[in-house]
Nucleic acid binder design. Sequence first.
DNA 1: CGTAATAGTACTAAAATTGTACTGTATAAT
DNA 2: ATTATACAGTACAATTTTAGTACTATTACG
Lengths: 153, 153
Amino acid sequence: MLRISRLTDYATVILASLGGGTLVSAAEVAERTHIGVPTVSKLLKELQHAGLVRSVRGAHGGYQLARPAASINAADIIDAVEGPIALTECASGNSNCGIEATCQVGHGWQRISHAIRRALHDVSLEELVRRDAPFTTPDLQRSPNGWRPLVRG
Amino acid sequence: MLRISRLTDYATVILASLGGGTLVSAAEVAERTHIGVPTVSKLLKELQHAGLVRSVRGAHGGYQLARPAASINAADIIDAVEGPIALTECASGNSNCGIEATCQVGHGWQRISHAIRRALHDVSLEELVRRDAPFTTPDLQRSPNGWRPLVRG
DNA sequence: CGTAATAGTACTAAAATTGTACTGTATAAT
DNA sequence: ATTATACAGTACAATTTTAGTACTATTACG
């Protein structure tokens, strides 16, 4: 129904692997997460740019979380990797949508986007990693219209 | 930060143009919405399949909403056009993610997905079209991290 | 000075999205 | 019946986005 890019998913995994707080090299992050080294490097660079991780260059350098996992949320991660792109094209500034003049629903998506953003903001990296999820409701395992929830495997 | 496909956006516009309740041909919908006829036809077919619109074939045929705009919600529309695809690849069933074994965050996205789905479910087509949005908060027009909300143009 | 690590940039390959064309089928008016 | 209109289904082509790679530069430690 809605998607985040795979790289964003990877970014979350990478951040989770940095939860210990110690300095870790990109190569070791790759080993821990089983994601390729080039991809890990690329993502860590972006996360550093966004201020979510701190980097130390030179020999024995590496990366570490810039702030505690509890104060990094899902919206931060998505913003860092996918940029401040909103639900619809017309929201991104360089709109060449073509039907703007007659469109009736553009403003409606704004409300939805707001609600989604709040949901993303309310889940921290710490909670994201914690295995005992607070509100995993079993009756949602398969909804009436066939939508499947997010369980790896 | 997160995106719906342009076709989903179009679908919403098309459904909005059908709010009158009368039978409207695909060609006229195209004219009203300024979306190309082939695209409109394709989308109306999918919406019919999903049960959101009713179709009448033959001369003087056309499309109309299958139920009142108040009882169609954003999640319905997204499901109809994008299918029951969830936030991450591992959720879609045919997972070949490669890092499943060591991944720590897959289940976390489930909670987020749940929250997002609820947000989408809570906005009806009727509300989506209504111009006087209930909770348009002006202080969100530009958030601290540069994200821009959804206003066409 | 050499090694180990990040920083930056540019490029290539693959996949999904988007839009189009064509053929078939049903209905109403003449 | 025939014809015109409009939906149904399928397949395809172009574009765009995403994902991953390679290479060079810079920084720091020993």
